[in-house]
Computed example of a mutant assay.
Amino acid sequence: MLTAISYKSKQFSLLLLKIGIVVGAFYLIYHKIFHNSAFSFSAFYRIISNSTSLSLISVIFLLLLSYFNWYFEILKWQTLVTAVSKISFKKAKAQSLGALTASLWTPNRIGEYGAKAMYYPTSLRSQIMLLNLVGNAAQMLVTSVFGGLGLIYFSLNFRPIFKYESMAIAGLGMLVTGVLIVWIMNANLFRKYFQSFQRLVNFITNIPKKTMVKSCTFSVARYLIFSHQFYLLLVLIGSELAYLETMSAISTMYLLASIVPSIFLFDVVVKGGIAITIFGMLGISQPVVLTVVTAMWILNVVLPSLIGSYHVLQFKLPKSEA
């Protein structure tokens, strides 16, 4: 009897949690679109509706780019998970989109780690979180490589003014942090934690090279898709900049945006502020930049998270956790 009551109580609590996540996601999206002082939906709609280049075909193509962006992300997750458990593309889709919806409240979508781990038994959760870290690291590596090249080209051609004092302070901070990490690793007090860290490193290094290569390949595919989607939106809304100039600005923007902490509620504001600064140097107006950033946010975050809401509601604890 007590076991039955405990089971029903757990299931009811899980149902409330799933409903809370979905309702919270819808509220965040609604608030961001219609009740945000930093964003005017009417201005966004006016610019989109006045664009003569936007057509049904171009909208469908933009939606297809979003589809393939997430298609490669789901493939990447399916590939990484094979290191501990084979899953179908359908399950990988449910986990990826469900985790997106569940992580909207969290800074830099860090809640995605715990959300994906919940799909697996307790014994596998630490490994699943590490695999998610590997996937995000692969995407960050690709963003850094393309962003670094774009930043060099952008700097040489547009001579942006950098605050070298701030860069020096940041570099000094990184050096001090590195020294502290080395000291901690050699301190007896932290030796057992360092051994745990070594086990984690060993797990990552034992991931098959083929899996790592595939993950990086899918990350490159994703980057090329969403960066060119941004470029296409700029062209459709009215930008007449040269391809290399625009792509260097886009890659610079994504590099800078990727290292600035943000939560979903302020994601568009953060990326919008960076984009306004970068594209302002190219003579693109603030309303146009904000419209493109918002359209990218709707296409690649809002729409997938709405689909993810279905997967959140369909979520069931693994058998060992039920």
Rank of each mutant, 00 (worst) to 15 (best):
Y120E: 08
Y30K: 13
R109L: 10
V59F: 11
L104V: 12
I19T: 13
K86Y: 04
I87Q: 03
Q78P: 04
I48K: 00
M118V: 01
Q95E: 15
K18S: 03
F26Y: 14
G24N: 10
T82Q: 14
A94S: 12
F89D: 00
A38S: 09
F68Q: 07
A115V: 04
K116T: 05
A115E: 04
Y119M: 02
F12D: 00
S88V: 11
P121A: 10
I19W: 03
G111V: 09
Y120R: 01
Y113T: 05
S40V: 03
S96Q: 14
I33W: 07
E112Y: 12
A99Q: 10
Y71I: 05
F61W: 07
I87R: 02
L80G: 04
K91N: 15
L28C: 07
E112D: 15
T101M: 05
R125D: 09
R109E: 05
A99I: 08
I57S: 06
L63R: 00
I33E: 09
L64S: 13
W105D: 09
S85D: 12
Y27D: 05
L64T: 07
K76A: 11
T122N: 05
K91T: 08
V22M: 11
F34W: 15
S42N: 11
L14H: 01
Y27V: 15
S42Q: 11
K116F: 01
F68R: 11
K86N: 14
I19A: 11
S58Q: 07
T101Y: 10
T79M: 08
S55F: 01
N36A: 06
N69L: 10
S123D: 08
A102V: 10
V23H: 08
V23F: 14
A94D: 08
S55G: 06
G114V: 06
S96K: 03
S49G: 03
A25H: 06
V23N: 05
S37E: 14
I110W: 12
G111F: 09
A92G: 12
L65Y: 00
W105P: 04
G98K: 06
N36M: 08
K18G: 06
A94K: 06
S58E: 10
S126E: 05
A117T: 02
F41Y: 15
K91R: 13
K8L: 13
T106G: 12
I74Q: 02
G114S: 06
V84A: 03
F26S: 05
R109K: 15
S55E: 02
S49D: 09
Y30L: 13
Q11T: 00
S96R: 06
S58R: 01
S126N: 08
T122R: 12
T101Q: 08
I19E: 02
S103L: 06
S126D: 04
L28T: 07
I48R: 01
M118S: 08
L16H: 01
S9W: 01
F41K: 02
K8N: 07
S103H: 10
N108Q: 14
Q127I: 00
Y120L: 02
P121H: 04
Q11P: 00
S40F: 07
L64Q: 04
N69V: 00
S123L: 09
V22E: 12
G114D: 09
S9C: 00
F72V: 09
A92C: 08
S53C: 01
